[in-house]
Design a binder for these strands. Sequence first.
DNA 1: GGAAAACATTTTAGGCTTAAAACAATTCGG
DNA 2: CCGAATTGTTTTAAGCCTAAAATGTTTTCC
Lengths: 172, 172
Amino acid sequence: MPAVSDCTKMLDSETKAVETPEDHAEELRLWLRLLTCTTLVEGEVRGRLRQRFDVTLPRFDLMAQLDKAPDGMTLSDVSKRMMVSNGNVTGLVERLVESGHLDRRTSETDRRVQVIRLTKLGRAEFRRMAAEHETWIADLFAELTPKDVRELMRLLAKTKASAQKSAARRRS
Amino acid sequence: MPAVSDCTKMLDSETKAVETPEDHAEELRLWLRLLTCTTLVEGEVRGRLRQRFDVTLPRFDLMAQLDKAPDGMTLSDVSKRMMVSNGNVTGLVERLVESGHLDRRTSETDRRVQVIRLTKLGRAEFRRMAAEHETWIADLFAELTPKDVRELMRLLAKTKASAQKSAARRRS
DNA sequence: GGAAAACATTTTAGGCTTAAAACAATTCGG
DNA sequence: CCGAATTGTTTTAAGCCTAAAATGTTTTCC
């Protein structure tokens, strides 16, 4: 088995460093750290939502999307926004309609489309949870200075753009 | 419905700013952006692993942990490292033993403990996948300069520490 | 030594998630 | 206007994931 980490740069005989089996260990470490941070925060939020409100994180996330859209959203909209599969949304919505948090109706103008909205109950409960949720996030990020936050926002925007381009490259 | 985003600081009549319903919108945005980046990269990696190697991300992650531990790991070790539940690991390991990638044996000295290792096949396949995986990550983060990467590493380390302290505070 | 606490793992019940296929409705091009 | 592509949703099959309870093992400490 080849010791990948031991391989040194192979210089092209003519020019400079061509065909180098490049070392991307730094990017890999960055990815792992990013994943760790997200997993950490996500797990914490999930646990608190369950303990305080007996609600799951995906349900909360879906309600958060709808809270920003008073006129409702279609299932595809939700699916794209949440970056999850269509089928996933179908099930999630089913359960939230069942529990009285969501209202679902077929569009008048396009009978393929299902429009979902928060019910009064759903909106009230979401607002209550969201207020507390915001304090949890603040606490989880408490050691970051405003400057840290700004800088992270900037760098993550760049990261997002980079990843999106890479994904688009592959799809094409 | 109260327009939360409109509320301005309420100054305490006597001193300074006490009892302010603080605004943590920036931290919230940061969290959402962090989540977006992770979801984006994770989805991309998941898809590529499936297409190229017909393997799931959790299986790849588990094998990655074991590749770093030639002497094997206990299920709890894996569970802690991967930040997933014990029961989750049990099932994951079951399937990877079934497919011949993992070897599992009960510890000689402590019959509670299961030690798992990569088999020869498992290690070979993992190495092959890992090499390609590294290039995907490099591509996904391609637009970040080395300085960006360093800075992100630093800020995410700080973020991780902050979240861990917050989680510890809650547990105590 | 033996009960109690701690530990490692598995089981259980329920929910989440995906990819792919199936179904339904609309739009598009000829 | 009609067949073909497209779009929106649901279904299916399989796997992932969690929290909590159950099981078996070891350690602790009286």
